[in-house]
Design a protein around this nucleic acid. Structure first.
Lengths: 358, 358
DNA sequence: GTTTGTCTTGGAAGGGCTTCCACAAAATCA
DNA sequence: TGATTTTGTGGAAGCCCTTCCAAGACAAAC
């Protein structure tokens, strides 16, 4: 009979509706939607036609339940920062969406919330895998993460037991410094963040290596770092403050400075402006990160391949899901030099003056 | 007997495991986890104790399937922009997470993908509701959106049939312009984006109203707009180009300009710098949006309450889910003036000069 | 003509939860 | 005390899929 409407409210068709209309069994419908080979051409077409007419789509949750996977992954991201993550996320999402996989966003403002996210989502196959951004994984979670079937991938962080992606800070700093050397600078300083931070230390090491390889002196006076605990000194204020200390050097000021991050470089440029100094006329600056602001400031910097990192992060995670017991994979990206005006080559008389000073 | 381990691989406990261990029925366990009133204190405690010991958590997908709702909402967001959305998302996520609801991110780079997102997710209760960011809903989708049980909320956009949140562009422009007037400016110009864009038009209207109310002349020469189709002229390049046209006015240049967006204002400042003009000494600038760059540039601007918008967006969506047939709710936020150095008050002699010029 | 395969096919049995309904026990009332 | 309500409880049915197994259809091989 089926005379009554199924419901006042519209209800999406189920696999049974399709099977009935197409005069096949539910198994066949399911096979069609899972690209299973053994379905006859006629059956497949009939099913597809009906499914299309009723605009049927498999219910993702029912699927997840039956298949024991969810086709979605979670990104745990510290919200306080912006461009860097946004761009990585873009890469992640683009890859995931190719693979018909959902991206669940979990923003944390406080490390404690990481635990919450784990408990909340991962424990119970709400997601298949997780991406942790710029987050140090507390030891207490390591065991938990290893136990559950929801593998993590660390982005911009490292732990030897988990897949990770990061940028080669040392190499980046090396390239940045060499750029200044190649531009003819000899008295080169470094404005560093808090050396508690591993990236800060690595960048300093890269700087040192480049200087040593070029047989340039590494004057301790020309290496200044922030002691600020806030964001490990990766702030505009700290850049401003440290640059003022460089400015106090007066004539002993370096002719170029490698700054350990763009945001600090922004503060440094502020300080220069306040002192009436011009960049690059009076001093060259190279930053690190290539945040959005960098292009607006015309700041030469080391660009992290964020989008690509996002894509790869998704790929690594999916590969891990395929083969849960393979060895952790650690990938290093090498940042690329982006030359802008804060490091424009010195004109000859300036260079001469510079050499005299050195 | 139950001597064999359930599985080599660890399997999360189910409601049946809890029921068995706690010596109650599955119904009771379910009731405990859904805060159903009629459960005795003893039963509740017993269940909770066992659940805790086995670290049981209800399976979200099974729940979704049985309850016919997913406890997750999807945000469709144009990825090309950054700070604005990031901050709104933060508000959304904070609210959702209070309510134990997931945020699924769907980034689109092209309007066509909106359709994909609809087809893909919404049709089949993968999500309960959707948030569309800064996106004009094509008419062809309206019917579809109205039909399905997955209501949309428009953020930074408007359609009379759907809930929406937006910023009052006209009022914001009005406030911005009044700020310049109150600072003593009389020859005030406006640098506008492409007037095809509704926000651009609204901002122009707000400007006009403020000028008229202050009995200041609205000199057509001092209203210049971009004709660029790209992003409706809301670009740095367009700001640069239009500002050059202002600069060509020479002495007839206004003493202050309200620019219809921060990004254009950034371009405008570039142009000023290239011409050797200083801001605010030579001219005051007020932007609109308060993008991250604004604070770096010291740009006075109108700040959109992004985080708050995000929170409200989530609230509106959840309210709509509660009551699907209530009338659409449209909320207007009024942006707040953020005074920075590009509009610092003129010192007296400068103001005098200005009045002479007018 | 019988036997062995190879394709297809239908549908039962899950997957883990919520929601009912029926019923027992305890509390209230007459 | 018995009759009625209230409270708490167990578990079947259902949510919509996937996956498997048994079996039918047909072709090729004996």
């Amino acid at each position: 009979m089926e005379a009554l409407p199924r419901q006042t409210q519209f209800l999406p068709p189920t696999i049974y509706d399709i099977a009935r209309e197409a005069k096949v069994g539910i198994g066949t419908v399911s096979r069609v939607f899972n690209d299973h080979p053994s379905v006859s051409k006629e059956a497949r077409e009939r099913v597809l036609r009906v499914a299309n007419r009723l605009s049927y789509r498999p219910h993702p949750y029912a699927r997840g339940l039956a298949r024991k996977r969810t086709n979605s992954i979670m990104a745990v991201i510290p919200f306080f920062t912006t461009f860097f993550f946004m761009e990585i996320l873009q890469g992640v999402q683009s890859k995931l969406s190719d693979l018909d996989c959902d991206l669940i966003l979990f923003g944390v403002n406080h490390p404690d919330q990481v635990e919450e996210s784990l408990r909340h989502h991962a424990m119970r196959s709400r997601v298949d895998g997780m991406l942790f951004f710029s987050m140090r994984i507390p030891d207490s979670f390591v065991a938990q993460l290893l136990h559950q079937r929801t593998p993590p991938v660390l982005v911009d962080a490292y732990h030897k037991q988990f897949d990770s992606l990061a940028v080669d800070n040392r190499q980046g700093a090396y390239v940045a410094t060499n750029h200044l050397i190649a531009s003819g600078h000899q008295r080169i300083g470094m404005l560093s963040a808090n050396l508690e931070s591993i990236p800060a230390r690595e960048r300093l090491r890269g700087f040192r290596t480049a200087m040593e390889e070029a047989d340039l002196p590494v004057d301790p006076l020309l290496i200044k770092n922030s002691a600020s605990p806030r964001l490990d000194g990766f702030t505009r204020e700290s850049g401003h403050e440290v640059m003022q200390r460089f400015i106090h050097l007066g004539k002993k000021m370096p002719s170029a400075i490698f700054v350990s991050s763009d945001i600090q470089a922004a503060g440094a440029l502020d300080a220069l402006g306040e002192s009436g100094l011009k960049c690059p006329q009076d001093i060259s600056i190279v930053g690190f990160d290539d945040i959005e602001l960098a292009s607006h400031l015309g700041l030469t910097t080391m660009r992290q391949p964020m989008y690509e990192m996002g894509v790869l992060a998704a790929e690594v995670l999916l590969a891990r899901l395929e083969d849960p017991k393979r060895e952790p994979v650690h990938t290093m990206f090498v940042p690329k030099l982006v030359v802008r005006k804060t490091s424009e080559s010195l004109d000859s008389h300036r260079r001469a003056a510079c050499e005299t000073a050195a």
